[in-house]
Design a protein around this nucleic acid. Structure first.
Lengths: 181, 207
DNA sequence: AACTTACTTTAGAAAGC
DNA sequence: GCTTTAAAAAGTAAGTT
């Protein structure tokens, strides 16, 4: 519990029915946009849990922008209630699956990105294109963006605890590099 | 049996035609950018390697050629930005960058991040600056790298700021606007890097 | 020169082109 | 591959004031 890891985004998927009339749903939901020419899903933004939901004709639903799985579940229950109250055929307590989580943290040191790029396989660092170094880990299968400030972004997370595991692995690798130098 | 034979001829015909096209593309882009022979040859080697490993599948010949040239420029320490390569070819920078990463990974080429110092000779030359200014800019960049002032910043921006500072210090002043133009960055970026470098390296620039 | 807004990178799901 | 969604990191860019 040394590093303060903060979950900043959670992506979740679920299914609330099948063969959903998105035109109808668009009329029922307040902040809904549905432009099939542009994207096959209906976009609905909620302000309460500040999230965005994508609803598809198949009944599949994605929820992004939540800070936790629970927050995403609250958002999904909200739209389910709205659609059900309007008379649509919707599943009540669908199983929600976390597809991805994004976290931020601080290494507490200012790493030399050039050294990391040269010494660690599987890292990409192209400052011309992006200031962060891209570090792909296999064990917790996540991707970590490391910045010169020591700030870090961890994404691809399926479990919250993997963030700390990944962070510790990186700190350990950084220590090994410093020993060599 | 005869069909199979004809097919082989056709395939090898197509391969040769594609390789010839790729090499002419490399030459066309390289000429437009005024790249030396060794860079073109290096790019051709990379391209052939990509063909041998079947890395062209699902990718355009122009895209792979542009990416090979981008990688070759870096390997030969005469870097061109993705924007410069994109402008000289008809491939957009996003695809060149993506293809370059793919090639580097698949061909097992590990390129060090572009060193801002590698941009100095070209930029200084385009600005008509003497060798002393070039050397001074390089010295500034070496100090900057030691203090971690280049990490995360765009190589062209840092190089531009160092050249600007060196030009002022040695009495061969170029305007930020002129330096920004040859480096392909904005004046705002030069000012930001300028502030950072002069403050952290204790450089007194009196105008 | 300051502000604001916006784009670069990463992951993942969805349905369709 | 692309399209759309959200969010963070830090750098760079562009438009206003």
């Amino acid at each position: 519990m040394e590093p303060k890891i903060k979950i900043v985004n959670v992506v979740v998927s679920t299914q609330i029915g099948s063969d959903i009339d998105l035109e109808e749903a668009a009329l029922i939901l307040d902040n809904a946009e549905y432009e099939p020419e542009q994207f096959p899903g209906l976009v609905c933004r909620l302000s309460d849990p500040k999230v965005a939901l994508l609803i598809f004709r198949s009944g599949k639903v994605n929820c992004t922008g939540a800070k936790s799985k629970e927050e995403a579940e609250v958002a999904i229950k909200k739209i389910i209630k709205e659609l059900k109250d309007a008379g649509m055929d919707i599943i009540d307590n669908p199983e929600v699956k976390v597809q991805n989580m994004v976290a931020t943290a601080d290494l507490g040191i200012e790493p030399n990105l050039d050294d990391i790029a040269l010494m660690i396989e599987g890292t990409e660092y192209e400052p011309e294109q992006f200031p962060g170094l891209v570090y792909r880990l296999d064990d917790p299968k996540v991707v970590v963006l490391i910045f010169g400030s020591g700030k870090v972004v961890i994404t691809g997370l399926k479990r919250e605890e993997d963030a700390e595991i990944a962070l510790n692995k990186i700190l350990e690798t950084l220590r090994e590099i410093e020993e060599i130098i | 049996r005869l069909r199979k034979w004809q097919r082989r001829i056709r395939v090898s015909d197509a391969s040769e035609r594609n390789l010839a096209f790729a090499l002419s593309e490399l030459d066309r882009i390289a000429s437009k950018l005024g790249l030396p022979r060794n860079v073109r040859e290096n790019a051709a080697v990379l391209y052939r390697g990509a063909v041998e490993k079947g890395l062209i599948r699902g990718r355009s010949i122009e895209g792979v050629a542009a990416a090979a040239l981008y990688a070759a420029c870096r390997r030969c320490r005469v870097p061109r930005t993705l924007d410069e390569i994109a402008e000289a070819s008809r491939v957009d920078r996003k695809e060149i960058g993506r293809t370059y990463r793919f090639l580097a990974r698949e061909l097992g080429i590990k390129l060090a991040p572009t060193n801002p110092i590698d941009y100095v000779p070209r930029f200084a030359s385009e600005l008509g600056l003497p060798g002393e200014v070039e050397s001074k800019a390089i010295a500034i960049l070496q100090k900057a790298a030691e203090k971690g002032l280049t990490s995360g910043r765009g190589p062209t921006g840092v190089a531009a700021a160092a050249i600007y500072i060196a030009s002022v210090l040695l009495g061969n002043r170029r305007t930020q606007r002129d330096v920004a133009e040859v480096a392909g960055v904005t004046e705002v970026t030069i000012r930001n890097r300028y502030k950072e470098l002069t403050e952290h390296l204790d450089i007194d620039v009196t105008l």
